[in-house]
């Protein structure tokens, strides 16, 4: 970490160290406001320390940037979209990377439109990782229903890699507005009471229910839709990495499905043709 006494580049504001204390780990609006103030004051990236509630307090001595805001800075829409995503990344350098890009784009106008530039490629990688994390949350989060004095409640335990709970809570509101639900994660929890969203600090896995009555049927479905003649476990793991398995009720049956597959296929390939029974009736019920 950079210390205030570290050598500073020459320049009017560069001699001084500044510190931006963000109140959230993924607060894009707060970062943008701070970045505009820093730019307006001509403070270069190497003089800025970015802090979130996750950083230990009191280590850095910089003062907050001056409050005067410069004019809005036109940046490409793609860059804004990537920045909004990258700000949720767990990488502690995310704020500094974004500000450095913004700073350099003042003297190099095409920078933010050059996907092959190394820092832009890094930013794209961070945005991609956050998008994937969000997509996996939409996909692999599983609710379990419990009874409460106010009626049924759906509770999920999920472990995202990045700071995405606030950003993705809206997806679950749009989908499950009719339910009352809680999404518990190690860093942040979201709760929906049917009318409003609330966020609370992180929880533990043991705080979520351990089972749900529908899971047995779901495992039955998962096992039956699997085609043993097409066994491709690497393709499965590429899309559903093992780290998710402990929170997926269906993953418990994967080992036995894989073990049994070859035997089932051998039987199908070696089967002798049995004469068909008489043509069945059309009904079926």
């Amino acid at each position: 970490m950079r210390r205030p006494e570290a050598p500073q580049p020459a320049g009017a504001a560069a001699a001084e160290a500044f510190s931006v204390a963000l109140e959230g780990c993924a607060d894009f609006a707060a970062w943008r406001l701070a970045a505009r103030r820093l730019l307006a004051a001509g403070i270069p990236p190497e003089s800025v320390e970015w802090r979130t509630p996750e950083d230990p307090p009191g280590l850095f001595g910089g003062r907050p940037p001056p409050e005067a805001e410069g004019p809005p800075l036109p940046v490409p829409r793609d860059f804004v979209e990537m920045a909004e995503l990258a700000i949720r990344h767990a990488d502690r350098e995310r704020f500094a990377l974004l500000y450095a890009l913004l700073w350099d784009s003042q003297t190099r106008p095409g920078l933010l439109r050059t996907p092959t530039e190394p820092r832009m490629a890094r930013l794209a990688g961070m945005a991609r990782a956050v998008r994937r994390d969000a997509h996996k949350m939409h996909a692999f989060l599983r609710f379990r229903e419990i009874g409460t004095p106010e009626g049924p409640r759906s509770v999920a335990w999920f472990e995202p890699e990045h700071h995405i709970v606030e950003a993705e809570a809206g997806f679950f509101v749009r989908r499950f507005a009719i339910l009352r639900w809680s999404i518990l994660t190690p860093r942040r929890c979201a709760h929906w009471d049917g009318a409003a969203l609330a966020f609370t600090p992180g929880a533990r896995r043991a705080d979520a229910p351990a089972e749900d009555a529908a899971e047995d049927l779901w495992r039955t479905y998962f096992a039956s839709i699997f085609n043993p003649a097409r066994l491709k476990p690497d393709a499965m793991r590429a899309e559903m990495p093992k780290k998710y398995w402990k929170n997926l009720p269906e993953a418990a049956v994967i080992p036995e499905l894989m073990q049994g597959a070859e035997g089932r296929v051998r039987v199908m390939l070696g089967q002798e043709f049995r004469a068909p029974r008489r043509r069945q009736k059309a009904e079926g019920d």
């Binding site: 499950f176 507005a177 998962f222 085609n227 491709k232 499965m236 590429a238």
Partner: peptide, 30 residues
């Protein structure tokens, strides 16, 4: 989306909720 009532949403992008050991996506109750 369900904010005006009902259950569920569709937002354009498909979602694969699980993958079977055959590597195929499980998105729908088929």
């Amino acid at each position: 989306d369900s904010r005006q009532g009902g259950l569920g949403s569709t937002e354009g992008m498909g979602i694969c909720h699980a993958y079977a050991p055959d590597g195929r996506c499980i998105s729908l109750l088929k």
